[in-house]
Design a protein around this nucleic acid. Structure first.
Lengths: 214, 214
DNA sequence: TTTTTTCTAGCGGTTTACCTGTATATTTTG
DNA sequence: CAAAATATACAGGTAAACCGCTAGAAAAAA
């Protein structure tokens, strides 16, 4: 917010797909007032950069090699509250969109959106608005039944057992792996069924994958 | 191999992510001899285009809205044998890479590859070589155990039942849905276990998802 | 420190899954 | 057409999953 003549918009991109960052750069080239200061293939390295540079917008992917974009968004906003974060991701799940918006993002764009939609979103965010591409709007507006009930909280142990169930292990296998009695494993399993309202393990895994973020 | 002065390379792209096509275009701009004739967000529309234009290279995504890139590659090569097809995809599964190469592709690039690797690959393909990005080479060279046994053939009915198992249905549910006796469903289920060497339904689904393409 | 949650473990019981066969009509393939 | 593969179905059995309920020890939160 300087009073200088050159009030250019500073953008950084965090995305492990060089082609995507290349594509966005190419989009933004038309606008001479936009500067892409840097691109990061990993998430965490952007934090020190943000601390020492004046960045207006971060374009942030969800799936990154080192951290997930949802958590990173929160860190960015804690450190640089004035910096706008726009998610740019392939994930079309409502839960993910809502999560990152709750963590302070100003917009959400799907990577398969038309280029002009992406441009529009960035412009709208600069105006202080929340911005979504068309497909994202539709996802947000049509919450599926399961989207209402917030995902159940699962404990550390349950998570561990869930992973083993997912890998195809039987309860007895799991008991041996975790040095537990069969009863204990089955109790945990039973509690998981109750929490998610599942009738069998396959349904449980389905529900978990729908409701638990990343 | 004409004797004309302007020997430009004609490329088309088939990818439902406009940003990606934009990114590739931007990459190839440095090379004045390269012409990007067209980009397609869907797979099938490229076929008539290829019939009426002289295209040297098709950059082809695997996941497309209307068809999968593996089948499309075969169609392209049947129709235009001299056109090189290079897969450009997010899929890092060996089975997928091998499948599309068997269908006549000349290269496979992962979308998260560095831009210079992608450039190199395209150049190598133009020289008539097979070309892979680094990560793809590593995937091909390290075939996992399960990669040796070719995926079992499953029948129409088995596929149907597999989908219902995957959705969390019990055998009795499936019997009712398909108007079959419980015994029949269990026989099919049992045959599936044998074909895939699975001990339980979850393991079965895991193996299916590993071994069956898309 | 008290309270709450989580982890642990067990029992009795029902249901479903999974194994091993056999067998016949239909469909596909050579 | 003959042979092979597929879809259908049943029997009899073991193992595992799933249900409901109880309960003490350990850990975390208030």
């Amino acid at each position: 917010m300087s009073t200088e003549g050159k009030k250019s918009v500073n953008i950084i991109m965090v995305d492990d797909h060089p082609i995507v960052t290349e594509g966005i750069k190419s989009l933004l080239m038309d606008h001479p007032c936009v500067d892409v200061l840097a691109t990061f293939n990993h998430g965490l390295p952007c934090l020190p950069f943000l601390a020492s540079h004046n960045v207006d917008i971060v374009l942030l992917d969800i799936s990154l090699p080192d951290v997930n974009g949802i958590d990173l968004c929160l860190q960015i906003k804690s450190q640089n509250p004035k910096t706008y974060v726009i998610a740019l991701s392939n994930h079309a799940e409502r839960s993910i969109i809502v999560s990152i918006m709750q963590n302070g993002a100003s917009g959400y764009m799907l990577k398969n959106s038309p280029v002009d939609e992406i441009k529009k979103c960035i412009i709208n965010v600069l105006k202080g608005k929340l911005a979504f591409t068309q497909a994202v709007k539709e996802i947000i507006e049509k919450p599926a039944l399961n989207q209402f009930k917030k995902p159940p909280k699962i404990t550390k142990r349950e998570k561990e057992i869930l992973a083993l169930i997912d890998s195809g292990k039987t309860s007895m296998d799991i008991a041996e792996i975790l040095f537990l009695s069969l009863s204990t494993v089955e109790t945990h399993r039973h509690n998981l069924f109750q929490k998610f309202g599942a009738k069998n393990a396959i349904e449980l895994l389905k529900l978990v994958k729908e409701q638990v973020v990343i």
